[in-house]
């Protein structure tokens, strides 16, 4: 026990300075009395990697813009560079932030990639490839990935059921494109819708009770 003459009190442990007034302590200390372990500062290394990546993206974007302004006759291609960087970062941000919950991560990616694909398709003069191929394919891939990952990671059905269900419902949406006749290639969309319906049916038939319970929990008011 050491003593602080200024505060007129005892300080446990073997500190050199008073934790209250930072004056030098007197007396014999006993390091055994420390009530808390010393926990060193953690330097987060991965943030440096992301910082470098982010810096390179910004630098690349600025260089592209500058070059584009120097060569205006080459068209406004730099906007595509910027859009591409933005899309990559949006997807990466979700992937990193939701890394603890893989099924949720997959679902978020499905929605994001579908929307971004539609955006790209639209800005490049709507050739329909996003709804012909991208939307149906990401839906199917996500469903397959969730089923496989559930096995590999030994997820409990309660933990991914809801995401699989939402993905399957999302996967039925291409039927609207099919019925309104906006599709140029119908196979991926039909496979996606059929796959989604089968997944939903499987969920309802085998896990109907749990599904209901899960919905009740998640939707309680």
């Amino acid at each position: 026990m050491k003593t602080c003459e200024k505060c007129r009190l005892q300080v446990a442990g073997n500190r050199q300075f008073c934790p209250l007034c930072q004056a030098e302590l007197t007396g014999e200390g006993d390091p055994e009395q420390e009530a808390f372990p010393k926990i060193p500062t953690v330097y987060r290394q991965h943030t440096l990697f992301f910082r470098v990546l982010l810096f390179c993206s910004i630098a690349g974007g600025v260089v592209a813009l500058a070059l584009n302004f120097m060569l205006p006759q080459s068209g406004w291609w730099s906007l595509f560079v910027l859009l591409g960087l933005g899309c990559t970062w949006a997807s990466l941000a979700i992937a990193v932030r939701k890394r603890g919950n893989i099924p949720k991560n997959l679902l978020y990616q499905v929605v994001l990639i579908s929307l971004l694909a539609a955006l790209w398709d639209w800005v490049t003069g709507w050739r329909g490839w996003s709804i012909d191929y991208v939307v149906p394919l990401v839906c199917i891939c996500a469903m397959v990935a969730m089923s496989v990952l559930a096995r590999v990671l030994r997820l409990r059905i309660q933990d991914y059921m809801i995401y699989l269900c939402i993905d399957a419902v999302f996967g039925i949406v291409p039927i609207v494109f099919f019925l309104t006749g906006v599709l140029r290639v119908v196979y991926p969309a039909l496979i996606c819708v059929a796959g989604s319906l089968i997944s939903l049916a499987a969920l309802l038939v085998f896990e109907g009770q749990n599904m209901l319970l899960e919905l009740k929990k998640r939707l309680h008011l």
Binding site: M1, C4, C7, R8, L9, Q10, V11, A12, G13, C18, P19, L20, C21, Q33, E34, A35, F36, P37, K38, I39, P40, T41
Partner: peptide
């Protein structure tokens, strides 16, 4: 914290301080 505990010790109440270690 210093003002608080000094008020107590100056009143004659004995105090022992325990604290966590900041880097």
């Amino acid at each position: 914290q210093m003002q608080f505990f000094r008020m107590l010790t100056y009143m004659g109440i004995p105090v022992t301080i325990v604290s966590n270690q900041i880097d």
